[in-house]
Design a binder for these strands. Structure first.
Lengths: 142, 142
DNA sequence: CCTTGATGTTTGAGGTTGTCAAGTAACCGG
DNA sequence: CCGGTTACTTGACAACCTCAAACATCAAGG
């Protein structure tokens, strides 16, 4: 479908494999941390967004790359648990702003802490190594 | 919950953020590649496993870290599409070996190709950089 | 003002993924 | 051959996700 040259040398394949492993482990730990707080992965992701600032439903859907109607259900469940609430947008009555409640903010903060712990493998690297890793990842992300 | 020292310096947080971005992008592209072949992410992951070798249902569940009963449905759908089939294990009649059909192997191969393309950002790195990245990732994964 | 079109959210149907508990079939050790 | 374990499937249920349709609201033009 494309004449783009692709790297298939052993080194690249090895790096691709390592990245796949990192991705898999990251996901496991994220889901586990969410489950420890009685949340699903999707609920945890939405709550993390809302803990930064209230957002219109549509914006949440864009961030999560899914349909807005999907967000309705997720926020419903967060609301039923008292972790989020819907507020009117003073400037546009069509919009509903989803916002974290006090309890939601607390839960989000605990989750963030758990994630830092989950990401602890970085602790095995020296500062110079972390700098190097940062620069390489930055370049990879163009 | 734990006295483990946690790194919260700006550099570590930056790396954590970059990894989160890599994870998110990797996932998007994987789901997109799967969708291009009329597969869900879970189906693509199972098919990728089966394209390497036939596996007992239980082993698939262990690799995917889910319940075996979940695999039943996924293999059912792959089988309905003619991409996989169930074979008896000659040594143990309790076991059903899920295996990719010819068409399944072809689909898996096309998927792999699409993924290599999706992972192309690595192409922006020199060989020395890829080596460095490989070693850092290896160390991160202990 | 009022109509027309676009936007934001929700609802309902339907499919996939996931869990758990129960059931069936087959292996294995005593 | 019996009892316990193992492998898979089934059924019930919840969450996630998409799509199409409905509804309210906004915004612009006649």
């Amino acid at each position: 479908m494309s004449p783009t040259p692709q790297r298939t040398d052993p080194l690249t394949l090895e790096v691709v494999d390592l990245i796949a492993t990192v991705v898999a482990r990251y996901h496991e730990e994220y889901e586990e941390a969410a489950a420890n707080h009685q949340l699903t992965g999707a609920q945890a992701r939405v709550l993390a967004l809302l803990s930064r600032e209230p957002l219109p439903m549509r914006h949440i859907a864009q961030q999560l790359k899914c349909e807005p109607s999907n967000i309705t259900g997720i926020v419903d469940r967060l609301e039923a648990r008292g972790l989020a609430e819907r507020r009117p947008d003073p400037a546009d009555r069509r919009i509903k702003l989803a916002a974290a409640t006090d309890e939601g903010h607390e839960t989000a903060a605990r989750l963030r802490g758990a994630l830092h712990f989950a990401r602890a493998p970085l602790a095995g690297l020296s500062e110079a190594e972390r700098t190097s890793l940062r620069d390489l990842l930055k370049r990879m992300l163009t």
